[in-house]
Design a protein around this nucleic acid. Sequence first.
DNA 1: TCGCGTTCGTTAGAAGTTATAACTCCACCG
DNA 2: CGGTGGAGTTATAACTTCTAACGAACGCGA
Lengths: 222, 222
Amino acid sequence: MVNQEAKTPRERYRAQVRTEIKDRAWEQIATAGASALSLNAIAKQLGMSGPALYRYYAGRDELITELVRDAYRSLADAFRAASARPGADVSTLASTLRTWALEDPQRYFLIYGTPVPGYHAPDDITAIASEIMAPILDAFAGLPSSDTAAAFDAHLEEHRDWADGHPAPAAALRRALTFWTRLHGALSLELAGHFTGMGFDPARFYAAELDELTAPRGGDAM
Amino acid sequence: MVNQEAKTPRERYRAQVRTEIKDRAWEQIATAGASALSLNAIAKQLGMSGPALYRYYAGRDELITELVRDAYRSLADAFRAASARPGADVSTLASTLRTWALEDPQRYFLIYGTPVPGYHAPDDITAIASEIMAPILDAFAGLPSSDTAAAFDAHLEEHRDWADGHPAPAAALRRALTFWTRLHGALSLELAGHFTGMGFDPARFYAAELDELTAPRGGDAM
DNA sequence: TCGCGTTCGTTAGAAGTTATAACTCCACCG
DNA sequence: CGGTGGAGTTATAACTTCTAACGAACGCGA
């Protein structure tokens, strides 16, 4: 989307049709979920019939993989932009995540939802996934932390490869990890509709979870 | 499964075939996920061809709904059994949840995974869902709690319908809620494979999260 | 014990889906 | 201005869910 360096008119056209296909795919996914995505329906919407689409994507899997890649990149970009804002902190990231998720729940589930047992994401996608972790680590590395050594911190100190050379202490790593998992827990259950009918406000619960995530504790200060 | 009161031989046979169908469906779901569930394949495995299956289930949706119901009931039963064990506490429930989830990840995702946008679960299923909450509420109601009033607790006091008349204070309700969402966050990300390649032990992280869930805090004692 | 009706399983078929193969045709590049 | 490669087409195969119509078997009641 950024590098629109299309020299030949053919490449320009091809790129345009590809994004058009993805746009329709996102519409379908937003309304009916990823499992209901139909290449045929997309082709019809574009005015061309069926197999023409295979000139642009090798198949359903390749299209979905591309959408997953875009979703990851979108979230990574949102995080990067949010953390670049002056005065940005953990709370900024949290609200960015929630806003991004509510913007298109199915896009969120495309990343953090039910995985297909056989499928393994390509390397460049997992690279973007780790790119998402960086702003979170940054945010927690700058936060004052008076941790007592939780048992998990020591374990984490020996397995900090995923931090990708980030100089944060193990306690910050753990905080970044819990930031991720707890907010995912609250968010995915909300988006999946498991809170409907319970009455309380999901946004307040999310805020309460975030609050506990940032507030230092007394004894085992998290 | 419990009430095997099948009077007529026809009903006996019918019930047996229905469970046979569900067994094959579970096998397929465990290996290929719910989206790849094929009624035709199940019929072939049972030695009968295609449309015969519609005598037993009105369609794919009804079969999946039945599987979802069974999954909920299975988890509810596991929770009930675990909380009935002498010395059972919050940690017991947590390990029960994790064991149950690891036993069949796709069954877990059938409940807490990506929702189909249009679909709305029948009432009896949501009833079982609230039945799952009861043991958690019990466990936290019995735990000593020195909470300062978090803003969310007050909000929760006004929206405690979902607790279904449980006499636990709002603080316990919040703890039960966070128990659910945090463990779901850690568990679903693990099962979805988002921890693979990060190096650390998901079980230890799960234990650390549980630890913080049960340990009372200093200031705002959670 | 015998018949009749319910239910089961079958085949046929419609309307979808993904995906491949073969063919036409136009646009662009040299 | 011609040749080539890419775009889009139809036809086809192999799937899927699901409906309709038919036959056969099973069991209940007389």
